[in-house]
């Protein structure tokens, strides 16, 4: 039934061709974290890359859910989560491969998904994964390396995009109608603006 609905909706959505482009005011870039190495016999470097702030911009509304969603990954590499911010639609399966030659222990206490993957080798199969079936923000942490932080934003919409580090974004292939456009910047800041999309137009938005 869902498949038929998707097939029927697909040409309508494709013909809508609405878009929103704009800019989100982002906070200043944070410094890279300090890796705690007090009791490690083997110390490897100390330069961790900085993750510049970006926004997740999404359109809130009642949209049909696809029958299946592509599997996404959050990789543990160089003692960081890559990407450090992932946006997915509700129902997406996310894998957590470990590509370091050391253990990590990914866990989340977030109400949207509470899990602890334990310690696993890079070659262990299957790669530990989680089905994210509830919308909300999931904070990823490592039980071994306290500086490691990642965020997965689980959204009840298929229309979302991550801005570039300057705050610019473009949402394409949107259906015409009136919606709420939201820009998630951090756990404490989500900007929003009502938008009305007309068929074939590109709407320009500045947030806030």
């Amino acid at each position: 039934m869902k498949l038929i609905a998707c097939l029927l909706l697909a040409p309508i959505l494709a013909s809508a061709q609405c878009a929103i482009e704009g800019h989100v005011e982002l906070p200043k870039t944070k410094s890279a974290p300090v890796m705690t190495k007090r009791y490690e016999i083997v110390t490897k470097g100390g330069v961790l890359s900085t993750n510049p702030p970006v926004a997740v911009v999404y359109l809130e509304g009642n949209f049909a859910k696809p029958a299946s969603l592509p599997v996404k990954q959050v990789v543990q590499k160089d003692f960081l989560f890559h990407p450090s911010l992932l946006a997915v639609q509700t129902g997406t399966k996310v894998e957590f491969p470990n590509q370091d030659d050391a253990y990590h222990n990914v866990f989340s206490f977030s109400p949207a998904k509470r899990f602890d993957l334990g310690r696993y080798r890079p070659e262990d199969k299957p790669v530990p994964s989680q089905l994210l079936d509830k919308p909300g923000m999931i904070t990823l942490r490592c039980d071994i390396h306290e500086h490691m932080r990642g965020i997965i934003l689980v959204l009840d919409t298929p229309h979302f995009v991550i801005s570039d580090p300057e705050g610019n974004f473009k949402l394409k292939d949107l259906p015409a109608g009136s919606y709420k456009l939201k820009a998630w910047i951090s756990s404490r800041t989500t900007l929003e603006k009502p938008v009305t999309l007309t068929k074939g137009s590109t709407t320009k938005v500045q947030l806030p």
């Binding site: 300090v34 190495k37 110390t43 100390g46 330069v47």
Partner: peptide, 16 residues
């Protein structure tokens, strides 16, 4: 209270 500092890529300082 812990203090951890990374000075460049080669020097790490800590105190407790």
């Amino acid at each position: 209270l812990f203090f951890d500092a990374q000075l460049g890529s080669n020097v790490y300082v800590f105190a407790q």
